[in-house]
Design a protein around this nucleic acid. Structure first.
Lengths: 234, 234
DNA sequence: ACGCGAGATACTGTCAACAATCGGCGTATC
DNA sequence: GATACGCCGATTGTTGACAGTATCTCGCGT
């Protein structure tokens, strides 16, 4: 419980330029995404208020904000609960994500630069190295950065924000490890196809490769969750 | 579709099953989308509280929710303002919308039924009739219903909700009429292409027709706003 | 022992009051 | 006459208190 005494303290006293509620949104969001507040668990307003040294007002504003973002669920007279994603919802999110990511690929392909291409190939080389040496823990963050870089470079802030929101939301799925894993070497082959398409400047081709990359991740998730329900196991 | 736009009173007394703030979100959202609260205007908490007969607390919760939805903007110590969309943002939203709508078309194509096809062709026939007889005012709502029906039938609630959110958000664009108009007869020709693709069950083809339909609307918007295209292709 | 209902409890929903901050307006000064 | 300064009203930020509701506990009856 009492871990990570690093630089993240539950103290918002320095905050003045931005509303207290806004800062609380970020903090509570962090608690949720790091798993400190587990999906399904209830959020106690008084506890949080004490923890952050504020009253319940700003806490309530923050939770309503998180509700609109889809991270928590508010039940009248019962409280707010950290949202728990069903398999169906996770799959739905994958379909939204593939659409957005494909579009990002299309947009990026239409205004590529040499510098962007260099960055992209750099990511791939790094991931190749990590995959070969078996440093799986280090692979995932680079993979994430690679995807983020593509979305951020597409030149559509709205699209980028939405994509990021759905990636965050996937953390609420029970089997988080499943959405993180994925082929590695297989995945990086797909990455190469994506970058090739981007380099060609063909928006349509870029869309397909990017869309398919996420769609395959969805299929892997489905396969690992629903393993041919033939018979009830012992 | 539980909206009864005819008789709307600023009274929420009947509400008990759902939180007051949630009801306020809907009400304020309505005020914004109907244009009663114009983009750029400031929302006075006390005025709203008096209007709805509540205190400022629930109003604040509602506005924070709307902030997360992207309908309003909160400036510390200054208040909340109805969001005003720049041309760039409107274009960005079109790119998000086309991605989502294309994906909806793909999903729908993959599980079409005769009944859905009948409904779709019904919409098109009705729009044809209205376009010919020049009833432009009646055309737009049917057009909207047609698109909504597609997105709702795709079988992905998350996708549908997001699509709807962005369509709503486009109402915050200064030249609302521009996003409503659009070829009519031209538009309905595209509609026919979309339905043909859906009927064929070819997801890829459905995606392209649906994506292109929204993308063309974006191009029309760009053309009418920026009369000299910097670079033209396609 | 077990089900059931009244009371206790803990929490959320809402409110009114207090504190802090911003913008406007008048005035003084150069 | 123009500009800088400071006061004041208006509005937001935050808080603590009160009311209503769901859940839990415990005693009672069978």
């Amino acid at each position: 419980m009492s871990s990570t005494p690093s630089r993240h303290v539950d103290d918002l006293s320095v905050v003045k330029s931005v509303s207290l509620a806004s800062a609380l949104v970020r903090e509570i969001e962090r608690l949720i995404l790091t798993g400190e507040l587990e999906p399904g668990s209830r959020i106690n307003e008084i506890h949080l208020a004490n923890r952050f040294g504020t009253s319940r007002g700003p806490i309530r504003e923050a939770t309503r904000s998180l509700e609109a973002k889809g991270l928590v669920e508010v039940v009248r007279n019962r409280g707010v609960f950290v949202r728990r994603l069903s398999t169906e919802e996770a799959v739905e999110i994958y379909d939204v994500r593939s659409a957005l990511f494909g579009q990002a690929g299309r947009l990026l392909a239409e205004h590529m630069t040499d510098e962007i291409l260099a960055r992209l190939t750099g990511f791939i080389a790094e991931m190749d190295k990590l995959a070969e040496s078996g440093e799986f823990d280090a692979y995932y963050p680079v993979n994430l950065a690679f995807h983020s870089f593509i979305v951020d470079s597409a030149g559509n802030k709205t699209l980028a924000a939405e994509y990021r929101r759905f990636v965050d939301k996937l953390h609420l799925f029970r089997a988080r490890s499943l959405v993180q894993g994925g082929g590695l070497a297989v995945s990086n082959r797909e990455h190469r196809e994506m970058v090739d398409a981007l380099a060609s400047g063909d928006g349509e081709r870029a869309f397909i490769t990017h869309w398919r990359h996420v769609d395959r991740a969805k299929k892997r998730l489905l396969a690992s969750i629903d393993p041919q329900p033939r018979r009830l196991s012992s």
